[in-house]
Design a protein around this nucleic acid. Sequence first.
DNA 1: ATACATGCAAATGGTTTGCAATACG
DNA 2: CGTATTGCAAACCATTTGCATGTAT
Lengths: 141, 141
Amino acid sequence: MSKAEKIYKEYLKRTGGRDTQQKRTIITELSKLRSHFDIEDFINEIRKKDSKGSRATVYRVMKGLLKEGFIQKITTNDGKVYYEHNFTNKHHDHIICNSCGKIFEIESDRIENYINEYCETIGFKPEYRSLHIYGTCSDCL
Amino acid sequence: MSKAEKIYKEYLKRTGGRDTQQKRTIITELSKLRSHFDIEDFINEIRKKDSKGSRATVYRVMKGLLKEGFIQKITTNDGKVYYEHNFTNKHHDHIICNSCGKIFEIESDRIENYINEYCETIGFKPEYRSLHIYGTCSDCL
DNA sequence: ATACATGCAAATGGTTTGCAATACG
DNA sequence: CGTATTGCAAACCATTTGCATGTAT
């Protein structure tokens, strides 16, 4: 069973919905993306596979994925919106340059460990996180 | 000079704008808020001080404050939007329960230090951050 | 005086929703 | 078959913008 298929199964289990071709296509295509993506581009991609893929369905699936922590939403300073999945379990954080808009991705076990420790002390069960660091990158300085 | 006045001066310096009563009122009222707030409530608050305070002006000032890192924007899982200032320099992060929606605030020097260290290694100058941890709180577990 | 700021209302853009048609279990 | 899901278009809501008016410098 492919990675995408596994995620899809897990998604169905957690959301308790029916097994449909649309959902499967969305999650399969999603799993092919490596980095943050624009949702409009993604919808166009979906439409190549399923000519009548609807925006509404994509958003409906996205909502479930967000809720279950499979994907996250990033809003940059200037209001642009991106989505990103973390199907690989390797969660990564973002460093965003306010000057040129470039986005750097980092993985940090130290932050991860710290968060887990901290949450344990207050009895909170962390599922996913979103960390964005804004500032100025070396090129712009 | 009050804290709010200091922020206001700093804001003017950084954005290079003119000194107006509206901006002053917005920043003064903002500095009175302790925690995350709903912008519509905030606009109503402003209107008590300045009967014709406009949504547009509030958003315009917010935009500058966001850009300069004086405030941050939080979007919860279910799409609700909050704002929050960090006029106190004591930046704090958020832990958000996906089940009941409660928001816990934490301060973490360890995360702060780590971020500063990390950014130094890549030549990035961090200005502010947004860290949101989603999961389930002890009450909901 | 003149350029920037404000207020209003209309426009925008991302996301959600009502409803009729369709497909899963 | 009965109910959840889809697709479409219209609705929604937070935010932005054009323009005429007001105000700081």
